[in-house]
């Protein structure tokens, strides 16, 4: 493990939930520069809630979230996104009815026009699939292409941390591979990734480190390959989840 000095995102005993229902009961984890961190846990353990809390969609009731050492607790969603955290939520949230190109430009909303255009050019070069369809309605893309578009859009802002919630859900095996390749390539571009993946084995193989979340708190953490090899984990949890 590297030193804590290059920690990008720290989540410190965070409590949050919906209405009267408390879901996260004090989750603590961190994401460091250029690493891919997997977050695993069963349905309802609080993975998606954690993602939503980090981006401000759910309010932090107690605890603190820091980005580059600065607290972002209580900031608005827009502000958090602009500070460098991008979330790709579960499901394919393209803006259907708008062009692929316009979808991408929205990822850079708030940046100057020159930055926006430069970033668009760069992204389209990186994703030739999207380049071919730049002028098409995003809603007309296939499921996998849409997911790729959403990831590409999230990268338009050059975020420090990319949060991915179930990026492979419902994709064809071929498309899953493409999406995972994109995620793996983020290591080189210096984007840290926090990944929720229902396919635990695939997620752990991709990740550097992993956290296991149970009942709204972190139950275990460690090097991804260690967790993958750990028999206690695979017996109690991986066996069923990995199908």
């Amino acid at each position: 493990m590297t030193e804590p000095a290059d920690t990008i995102l720290e989540i410190d005993s965070v409590v949050s939930g919906y209405g009267e229902l408390e879901i996260l009961h004090g989750a603590t984890l961190d994401v460091r520069a250029g690493e891919i961190v997997a977050l695993i846990g069963s349905n309802g353990a609080g993975k998606t809630s954690l993602m939503k809390t980090i981006t401000g969609l759910l309010k932090v009731r107690s605890g603190d979230i820091r980005l580059h050492g600065q607290s972002i607790t209580g900031a608005s969603v827009e502000a958090i996104v602009r500070k460098g955290i991008s979330l790709v939520p579960e499901g394919r949230h393209v803006f259907a009815g708008m062009k692929v190109e316009d979808n991408l430009l929205l990822g850079a909303y708030g940046l100057s026009k020159s930055e926006r255009d430069a970033k668009l050019k760069e992204t389209l070069e990186r994703f030739p699939l999207l380049q071919e369809r730049a002028k098409q309605d995003a809603g007309s893309l296939s499921g996998g292409q849409q997911q790729l578009l959403v990831v590409a859009r999230a990268l338009m802002r050059s975020p420090s941390v990319l949060l991915l919630d179930e990026p492979s859900l419902g994709l064809s095996p071929l498309m899953v591979e493409t999406v995972f390749e994109v995620i793996a390539s983020l290591r080189q571009s210096g984007v840290s990734v926090l990944l929720v993946e229902q396919n635990v084995v695939a997620g752990l193989e991709l990740a550097d480190r992993a956290y296991v979340i149970e009942n709204g708190a972190i139950a275990r953490s460690g090097i991804a390959s260690d967790l993958l090899a750990d028999p206690t984990l695979s017996n109690s949890f991986l066996g069923s989840a990995a199908q």
Partner: peptide, 8 residues
Amino acid sequence: MMARLSGI
């Protein structure tokens, strides 16, 4: 929601 997540 996605609009907010795009920084809007």
